[in-house]
Simulated assay, not measured.
Amino acid sequence: MNQPQHPAEQHPQPDFPSQEQPHPGWTGPMDPPPDHGEKSYRGSGRLEGRKAVVTGGDSGIGRAVCLAFAREGADVLFSHLDEEADDARETARWVKDAGRRAIPVSCDIREEANCRSLMDRAADEFGRVDVLVNNAAYQMSQPEGIEAISTEQFDRVLRTNLYGMFWLTKFALPHMPAGSSIINSTSVQAYKPSPHLLDYAMTKGAIVTFTQGLAQMLIDRGIRVNAVAPGPVWTPLIPATLPDTVKFGKQAPIGRPAQPAEMAPAYVFLASQEASFITAEIVNATGGTPLP
Results as ranks from 00 to 15, higher is better:
Thr186Tyr: 06
Tyr267Ala: 11
Ala113Met: 11
Lys96Asp: 15
Gln5Thr: 12
Ser194Pro: 00
Asp220Gln: 12
Gln139Gly: 08
Phe269His: 15
Ala201Tyr: 02
Asn2Ala: 12
Ala85Asn: 06
Val129Asp: 07
Leu214Asn: 03
Asn2Thr: 00
Pro12Asn: 03
Pro104Tyr: 01
Ala275Lys: 07
Arg42Glu: 14
Pro239His: 00
Glu144Pro: 01
Ala227Ile: 01
Glu84Val: 01
Gln251Phe: 15
Lys96Glu: 15
Leu237Gly: 15
Gln251Cys: 10
Tyr200Thr: 02
Ile223Glu: 13
Asn161Gln: 08
Val65Ser: 05
Val131Pro: 05
Ser18Arg: 12
Leu162Arg: 07
Arg256Gly: 09
Arg89Trp: 07
Glu72Phe: 02
Glu262Ser: 12
Gly73Cys: 05
Ser44Arg: 11
Asp15Met: 07
Asn226Thr: 14
Pro260Thr: 12
Asp199Gln: 05
Ala240Ile: 01
Phe248Thr: 00
Pro32Ala: 15
Arg71Met: 04
Ser187Trp: 00
Gly255Glu: 00
Pro7Val: 08
Gln189Met: 13
Asp120Lys: 14
Leu214Val: 12
Lys96Ile: 04
Phe210Gln: 00
Ala172Gln: 05
Phe166His: 11
Pro265Ser: 13
Asp75Cys: 10
Pro230Asp: 10
Ala8Pro: 04
Arg71Trp: 02
Ala271Trp: 02
Ile182His: 09
Tyr267Thr: 03
Asp15Phe: 10
Gly255Leu: 03
Gly43Leu: 06
Glu20Pro: 01
Asn2Lys: 10
Ala240Trp: 03
Gly287His: 05
Arg46Thr: 05
Ala178Cys: 11
Gln13Met: 06
Met1Lys: 09
Phe210Leu: 14
Ala137Met: 04
Gly73Thr: 10
Gly45Phe: 11
Ser185Glu: 04
Asp97Gly: 12
Ala88His: 02
Arg89Met: 14
Ala275Glu: 04
Arg63Trp: 01
Cys115Leu: 07
Thr91Asp: 08
Arg121His: 14
Asp31Pro: 00
Leu291Gly: 06
Ile183Ser: 06
Ser141Phe: 08
Ile61Gln: 08
Pro195Met: 13
Ala252Tyr: 02
Gly231Thr: 08
Arg50His: 08
Gly287Ile: 04
Glu111Leu: 10
Pro12Gln: 12
Glu112Asn: 05
Pro32Met: 09
Leu270Lys: 03
Ser187His: 01
Asp35Pro: 01
Pro4His: 02
Pro236Tyr: 11
Gly28Ala: 15
Val233Leu: 07
Gly179Asn: 10
Ser276Leu: 03
His23Leu: 13
Ile219Asp: 15
Gly145Ala: 07
Ala74Leu: 11
Ala227Thr: 07
Glu262Cys: 04
Ala227Gly: 07
Pro174Tyr: 06
Ala229Lys: 00
Ala52Asp: 08
Asp244Ile: 07
Ala113Gln: 08
Leu47Val: 10
Met176Ala: 11
Asn226Pro: 04
Thr203Gly: 09
Ala206Asn: 07
Val76Asp: 12
Arg101Ser: 15
Asn184Trp: 06
Asn114Ala: 15
Ile254Thr: 04
Glu144Thr: 02
Leu218Glu: 11
Thr203Phe: 13
Phe126Arg: 05
Thr203Asp: 07
Pro22Tyr: 10
Trp234Tyr: 09
Ile282Asp: 01
Ile109Arg: 13
Val208Phe: 07
Phe69Ile: 00
Arg256Trp: 11
